[in-house]
Computed example of a mutant assay.
Amino acid sequence: MEYINYIVILIFLSFILMRFLPTKGVRNISAADLKNELKDRSNKQFVDVRTPGEFKGNHIRGFKNIPLHQLSNKANELTKEQEIIVICQSGMRSQKASKILKKMGFSKVTNVKGGMNAWS
């Protein structure tokens, strides 16, 4: 019985770690690094995965608003051959969006750590 408890705890810890570890193949940049990325916009797509209300309140010029809950359905609006830079409010939704895009076959995905909170 004691072994079962250890196995359950191990599975739970593994699940927690997998949720918060960076996704393999996703580049993570800071808000300061994003400023450099914005200087050269060629071959890049900029996606803001916040809600339309959040986006309307404050956004970075050049970012396209595709809310996280719509990303799977609207991913066909993005080009798989170009790098995609993803931002949200704090970095959590953009990290999740980056995982979704990688699973959908996008090869160059970049997440902005800290999101709009770090940008301000």
Results as ranks from 00 to 15, higher is better:
Lys99Trp: 02
Lys24Cys: 03
Ser72Phe: 08
Ile100Phe: 03
His69Lys: 14
Ser98Met: 11
Asn36Ser: 13
Gly62Trp: 10
Asp33Ser: 04
Ser90Met: 06
His59Lys: 12
Phe63Ala: 07
Phe55Met: 06
Gln45Trp: 03
Ser30Ile: 01
Asp33Asn: 08
Leu101Glu: 08
Ile100Lys: 15
Lys103His: 03
Cys88Leu: 12
Ser72Gly: 12
Ala97Tyr: 05
Leu21Gly: 06
Pro22Trp: 10
Ala31Pro: 03
Leu21Tyr: 09
Gly57His: 08
Ser42Gly: 13
Asn28Leu: 08
Arg93Cys: 10
Arg61Val: 08
Leu38Asn: 04
Arg19Trp: 02
Ile11Asn: 00
Asn28Met: 13
Ser72Ile: 13
Asn43Gln: 14
Thr79His: 11
Gln89Phe: 07
Glu54Met: 02
Thr51Asn: 03
Asn65Glu: 06
Val109Thr: 08
Val49His: 03
Phe106Leu: 07
Glu83Asp: 12
Lys113Val: 13
Arg41Gly: 02
Gly25Val: 13
Ala32Glu: 14
Gln95Cys: 01
Gly53Ile: 08
Lys44Gln: 03
Ser42Tyr: 07
Glu83Ser: 15
His59Asp: 09
Ser14Arg: 05
Lys80His: 13
Lys96Gly: 05
Glu54Gln: 06
Asn65Ile: 09
Asn73Phe: 01
Ala31Asn: 04
Asn28Ser: 15
Lys102Leu: 00
Phe55Pro: 01
Phe12Gln: 04
Ser98Leu: 13
Lys44Glu: 04
Leu38Trp: 01
Ile85Ala: 06
Gln70Glu: 08
Pro22Ser: 15
Lys44Ser: 05
Leu34Tyr: 05
Ser42Lys: 12
Phe15Gln: 03
Leu101Phe: 03
Gln89Cys: 10
Ala97Phe: 07
Ser14Tyr: 03
Met92Trp: 11
Gly57Arg: 07
Ser30Phe: 02
Lys64Trp: 05
His69Ser: 14
Asn111Asp: 15
Gln70Gly: 10
Ala75Pro: 12
Leu78Val: 10
Lys96Pro: 04
Ser30Met: 01
Gly53His: 01
Leu13Asn: 10
Asn76Ala: 15
His59Cys: 08
Leu71Ser: 06
Lys39Phe: 04
Arg50Trp: 01
Arg27Met: 11
Thr23Gln: 08
Ser30Tyr: 00
